[in-house]
Nucleic acid binder design. Sequence first.
DNA 1: ACCTGAACACCGTTCAAGT
DNA 2: ACCTGAACACCGTTCAAGT
Lengths: 245, 245
Amino acid sequence: MAGKRNDADKDVIAGDSPPSSRVALSRDRILDAAISFIDEQGLPGLTMRRLGERLDVEAMSLYRYVGGREELLDGVVARVIDEMHDDDDVISVPTDGWQDFLQRLAHGVRRVALSHPKVFPLVASRPAEAPWLRPPLRSLDWVEMFLNGLSEEGFDDDKSVGAYRAFTSFLLGHLLLEVAVHGADVGPLDVLDEATEPEQDELRPHPNVRKLRSALSEDHSAIEFEESLEELLNRIAMMSSAKTP
Amino acid sequence: MAGKRNDADKDVIAGDSPPSSRVALSRDRILDAAISFIDEQGLPGLTMRRLGERLDVEAMSLYRYVGGREELLDGVVARVIDEMHDDDDVISVPTDGWQDFLQRLAHGVRRVALSHPKVFPLVASRPAEAPWLRPPLRSLDWVEMFLNGLSEEGFDDDKSVGAYRAFTSFLLGHLLLEVAVHGADVGPLDVLDEATEPEQDELRPHPNVRKLRSALSEDHSAIEFEESLEELLNRIAMMSSAKTP
DNA sequence: ACCTGAACACCGTTCAAGT
DNA sequence: ACCTGAACACCGTTCAAGT
């Protein structure tokens, strides 16, 4: 509805203004800049002033397009999950059964989580706009697609809702832990100092942790995701449709 | 190890200083104040200066005990999960099988999550100190207890590790979604304005969401937690111990 | 030993003013 | 119409100074 990406063709680079003020500002450009900023520097480093700097503009100019820092972050969340629209492996309607449909959707969400590990915690923990917009599927479009797909596959209302709940909490738990390992953070500003590992001293009174330390550090996220997703789908398949109150 | 709660019995209220500067400051008192502050006002409202105010002290005094805002938040996370030590339903070693053991632990974590809904997102998304400290079990003591318990119940190393991974991502997904419903937030400062629900307009192109809106808004967290936990335990029971590489 | 005043650098945000 | 300068209120944090 709101015009998207065409209004930069007027008197492009008239010729006498210094080459500083580049292409025109826009909400899209701002959100994109914010996302890559977080990808690179982490959320705590994102500042209205520094974001402006990155766009060759004073911070105050941003307010014409985004309303404030909070709204900016909401925009980032929305935009990041909407990247799934460009993912050809994610289909909008089941063609090979609901299991394949959900499988593709789950992997799509996982791909966006992994490509923006520092943004994903935001997707996970930003206050939801409504109870039916559960993270990480924070977009009416995607929830609609989810419910519509299952409905077309013969799920009744209760079963669709149950599947939605199970699907979202599955994704949230797995992906949040996976990006955490790949180095997310929503807290400190320092990219460095590598999270001072508890060393020998602290591990002495914890023999089991010490023994299993390296096993616990191995990253099997990919296979675990696959296997757990499989089991989730089985669980959904076996879900009774009525809640029998 | 570090003395805990005894050093406030000296010349209590000598008598001539104004009744302002109350009991002595201490790391414990600061962390407690921070937790109840977040419980009441939400994380974004927590400021070194306002926390000082709540303790009848200038913000700068806090730095003698906590090192900075980031360390303060780490302390909050640690302290909040350690509340489980006061939970008599959580046992430190299995007495009625590992299923009962994990069942009690899971419910213990759920209770602390529900009693501090605004703090839990912090437990979930604060950068972990080590790969073997997965949220929400962010404490060497609890991880040790977990592994030790399973080991005593005959789990071999791989199976214990697998169980740990499954257990943590289960808890993280379920509890984060549950506290989100009960009104968490890590973002905005406003306690009010109730998350402007998308109304009719936005729901028109989303017929399935509209139809299932009220079903999606029902809160069945308690039963869902119970049922999913049951299934998780079954899944763990069936876990092969070897990873067969 | 414990707390504070004053100061610094940096925030988000507003608004009248520039072009 | 779009951007900016200047200003306000509020941050986290340091440090010399008070008691």
